[in-house]
Amino acid sequence: MASPWLTDQQQRTWRLWLSVAELLPRTLDAQLQRDAGLTHAAYVVLAMLSEAPDRRLRMSELARMANQSQSRLSHTVARLEERGWVRRERAAEDGRGNVCVLLDDGWDVVRTVAPGHVAAVREALFDVLTDEQAAVLHDALAAVLDGLDPDQSQRRGR
């Protein structure tokens, strides 16, 4: 039995989602490039480290939290290391894994860039929604995420 086509409403919603999924990251990337010469992916890595205990995370956990593959994260971290914002070191607990550490210069970047990034997120996403629409969007996205990641193994903290 063939899968049914999307309804007209589903098709319109899907196409809106495709546009938002393309334009929102592009908008946030532009702000971060302009303000700090950073990609959004690099900023997320710095932000996740800034929120971690002792500003350090195992690379595997950081990849999950930043929604990046291990390979992509390795390239992102290498670029951040070149700028003197992070360093990699062996995990002290078992000596097998690697840990990424946010250095003081990287912490300064996060503190400097975060207010502009928050303003860009607010302007691009929340300022155009009512509080009720934002709540509905939250619930809808949470339902989609629960379907995509039912065991919660691939998502950032909520």
Rank of each mutant, 00 (worst) to 15 (best):
G97E: 08
T112I: 00
Q31W: 01
R83K: 14
H138R: 15
R156M: 05
L28Q: 07
V136W: 05
L46R: 00
E82T: 10
A114W: 03
T112M: 10
E51F: 05
E123S: 13
A42H: 04
D54H: 12
R34S: 10
V101T: 07
A41E: 13
A66K: 04
R83H: 08
Q154H: 14
A140C: 09
E22R: 15
V121E: 09
D108P: 00
A30I: 04
V144M: 13
L16R: 09
R87T: 05
R96C: 06
D146S: 12
V118F: 11
R158W: 02
L141V: 14
E81Q: 10
G37H: 03
L49P: 00
D131W: 10
M1Y: 06
S153Y: 04
H117R: 07
E132Q: 12
A142D: 08
R79E: 14
A47Y: 08
G84C: 02
Y43H: 06
D94P: 02
R56I: 01
V86G: 01
L18H: 10
A143N: 06
A47F: 06
Q133C: 00
T7M: 03
D146N: 11
R158T: 01
V109Q: 00
N98W: 06
N98G: 01
E61L: 09
P53N: 08
M48K: 11
L23F: 02
G95H: 06
L38T: 00
R64Y: 02
L137D: 01
M65F: 11
L141D: 02
H75I: 03
D131N: 08
R87E: 12
P25R: 06
V86W: 01
H40Y: 15
E61V: 10
L18P: 00
A30W: 05
S74R: 13
D146C: 05
E123T: 14
A91Q: 09
T27W: 04
V45L: 03
G37K: 05
T112Q: 12
Q11T: 13
L24A: 12
R26W: 07
D54Y: 11
E89H: 02
E61Q: 12
R79M: 04
L49A: 02
D149W: 05
H75W: 09
V144A: 15
R55A: 15
R88E: 05
R55Q: 14
V136Y: 08
L49D: 00
A41F: 02
H75Y: 09
N98H: 10
N98E: 13
W107N: 03
G84I: 00
L32K: 01
R88F: 01
S60K: 11
H40G: 15
V86N: 03
E123D: 15
A63R: 07
